[in-house]
Each structure stands twice: as C-alpha cells, then as structure tokens.
C-alpha cells in the first residue's frame, strides 16, 4: 500500500514539478504585471481626477463583480472573436492577460486605500513647503503608503496562486492540469493525486500566508473582505 503510493509519487514528481514551475511562473507574471497596472490605477483613483476616477471605478467593479472563470472565458473565447487581429491570441496569452488584469483590480484598491491612509497633514505640510503634486506623492506619501500595502498584497499573492488552478480549464499545463494528466496514468489513485497537488499548493501558499500575518501584526492594517 505505502510502497504503491511511494512509487506513484516518485514517478509523478517530475511532471508535477513541471506543473509547479508553470504555476510559479504564471503567478509571478500576474503579480508583477497586475501590480504595475493596479498601482497606476490606484494612484489615479486616489487623486480624485473627475472622469478617470469614475472610469477606473467601473473597471474595478466589473472585474471584482464577476467570477474569474467567466473573465477567463471572455479573454479566451470572446476577445479573439472580435475580429481585432492582435486580440486573436493563443490560450496561454489569454490566460496570462486575464490573470494580470484580474490582479490589477485588487491591487488598485489596495494602493488607493494605502495612499488615503497616510494622514492628510503630511500632504498639506508638503504643500506648505512648496512641493507640487508629483513631489508630494513621490517624496512624502508613497514612502509611507508602501509599507501599508505589504500585508494586503501578500494576501492578494496567495489569491493569485490559488486562481492559477482555474487556468487548467483552458489547457494551461500548470500544477492542476499536470495532475489531471497524471490521473490518466493512474486512474485508481485519483484521490491521492489530488491530495498530492493540494499539498504542493499548500507548500507554496502557506509561507506567504504566514508572512502576511506577521506583516499584519507589524503594520496593523486590517485584512477583511470588504466590498468598497
């Protein structure tokens, strides 16, 4: 019994490792690209620029109000169907773009909240010293806001890692997909293989979750599920 599971594990480990590397890669791309887009949107939204704030607000609500699976289908089926040539991408590009865009909606709100959490007096004092808007943000607000973003950004990173599993439905060879392929080889061990996959995700996510909790105690910013 135990020997059987051991042999299944050792024969599958190279495949699952390949899947894990893809999961790792996708999640890394999504957090980097998503943070860049999200930071831009968050900064603009925190500045209350009339038209842009509303427009980006709509962007965020659309992305947070629909399931990631549905968004993935839109990026995978609908956008290549529009007839615009550069949107007729392959499944891997669709998956990467979908996850990055999804990530950006969460990052934007974190950045906005962090900027607004810096006391107003800081910005006003900078104004009194004759700094312009860019200087105030860059030298006074950002450095103080940055540390506030660490705990919620870690939580978002875990959320991204978990969302990469959904990419298996459009055929991306990440961890879950590699597991499904492995099950074709060992159909009787389906439960064991899914358990193994869950364990690998756990090894990736749990340290990040611990870090988020540690950072939260240091920074003291609440991490609740809140709609606004």
């Amino acid at each position: 019994m135990l020997e059987h599971y051991w042999s299944v594990t050792t024969s599958l480990l190279p495949f699952l490792w390949k899947g894990f590397l893809e999961t790792f890669y996708v999640s890394l791309v999504a957090i980097v690209v998503g943070s860049l887009i999200g930071a831009l949107i968050g900064v603009v939204r925190s500045q209350r620029i009339p038209l842009l704030t509303g427009l980006f607000g709509l962007y965020i609500h659309v992305l947070r109000g629909t399931p990631f699976l549905v968004q993935l289908y839109v990026f995978y089926f609908v956008l290549p169907n529009t007839g615009i040539s550069w949107l007729s991408w392959d499944s891997r590009t669709a998956a990467f773009v979908a996850l990055s865009v999804y990530t950006s909606s969460y990052v934007a709100e974190i950045i906005k909240a962090a900027i607004e959490a810096v006391p107003r007096g800081q910005s006003e004092a900078a104004t009194a010293l004759g700094m312009n808007r860019i200087q105030r943000l860059w030298y006074v607000v950002f450095p103080q806001a940055l540390k506030l973003t660490v705990p919620p950004m870690s939580s978002v990173y875990v959320m991204i890692i978990k969302s990469t599993a959904i990419l298996s439905v459009v055929g991306i060879s990440e961890l879950t997909r590699q597991g499904e392929v492995s099950i074709l080889r060992y159909p009787r061990d389906i439960l064991f293989i899914y358990g193994l996959i869950a364990f690998i995700y756990f090894l990736y996510c749990y340290p990040v979750l611990r870090f988020a909790r540690w950072a939260e105690r240091r920074v003291g910013m609440a991490r609740t599920v809140d709609l606004d």
Partner: peptide, 22 residues
C-alpha cells in the same frame, strides 16, 4: 483553516467530488 486558505477552491472541489463517495 490553514489548509483551506492555502489550497485552491478548484482542487478542494475535486477532492470533495472524488473523495466523498470513496
């Protein structure tokens, strides 16, 4: 709590779907 938070829902669904009947 740690196990659920650190694993994807999709994998949990598969575990329930194939695990519960077994």
């Amino acid at each position: 709590v740690a196990f659920i938070r650190a694993t994807p829902l999709l994998v949990q669904i598969y575990l329930v779907y194939y695990g519960f009947p077994a």
